[in-house]
Amino acid sequence: MPGSLTLWFLVLQRLGIALLTLLIVSFAVFFATELLPGDVAQILLGQAATPEAVAGLRHAMGLDEPAILRFFGWLAGLVHGDLGTSYVNKMPVAQLIGDRLINSLKLAGVTTVVSVPISLLMGIAAAMWRGSIFDRVISTLTISLISVPEFLVATLSVLVFAVWLGWLPALSYGADTSSFTALLKAYAMPVITLSFVISAQMIRMTRAAVIETINTPYVEMALLKGASRRRMVLGHALPNALGPIANAIALSLSYLVGGVIIVETIFNYPGVAKLMVDAVSTRDLPLIQSCAMIFCVSYLSLITLADLIAILSNPRLRH
């Protein structure tokens, strides 16, 4: 069928674009960190080092090779899982990242599980009763939440839940994680903060996607067939909004990447983002590069996923 042929062509094209983008992004990350800050060997050895020592280290690190060769060497290393060695504590970057990545993924995973169902319900409900008090409250709340920086949401959550109510500890690292309730408490603040940020986006996008389909002639046709509001929204609008909604979820989750940087820092949570922010202050380039690539890959995957969903959800291409 020509429809499905076009479909696969579009999907392959999108994946190709994602790979190309990834290449350009890695190029940008490598050269931004590698070329701009001056001489790495000099930085490592300090101002007092002799020129010979610096030259020796440069040679030992392969820094005297052309940058483009080092880029491809670095890229090949990344593909094989060789992330290089930290400048600061001489440990393999992969080892430094290992557990931290799992911690970050846990945080992101729990946030996703919490925020997706809540957001979908609220977004669809707001669209279904558009213009109602409920809708207006949701709209105002979400627009306020997406308007403020993540750290502000975090700060407010700490003020409310830890300082004024005293329910939860303000920091998660080093907190007691022996029992389930203690674990819950340790995760609660970061997850609450991130969920607020992600959900606000997701609710707005879900609502917009559903409203767009509600305004179509075929939903008006359903009204003129005598369908109830529930049937119009759930039976006619929602099946056609599924693609856009899934797209909205994937796009909103990409905000996790930015949010997680702030949230890990503020709650002292031992994840990749915290590692990276620390690496930035110590100028540990291999570590910065690797962390940046992890974020870019996850961000790109989510965005590509969103695009793929948008393509796959087109009924004209599916049938």
Binding site: L20, T21, L22, I24, V25, A28, V29, A32, T33, P37, S254, V257, G258, I261, I262, M276, V277, A279, V280, R283, L285, I288, A292, F295, C296, Y299, L300, I303
Partner: peptide, 16 residues
């Protein structure tokens, strides 16, 4: 492709 870099991260790397 530049849109494929999360914005806060872009800032972090540039400042670094």
């Amino acid at each position: 492709a530049f849109n494929g870099i999360p914005s806060l991260l872009f800032g972090l790397v540039a400042v670094a």
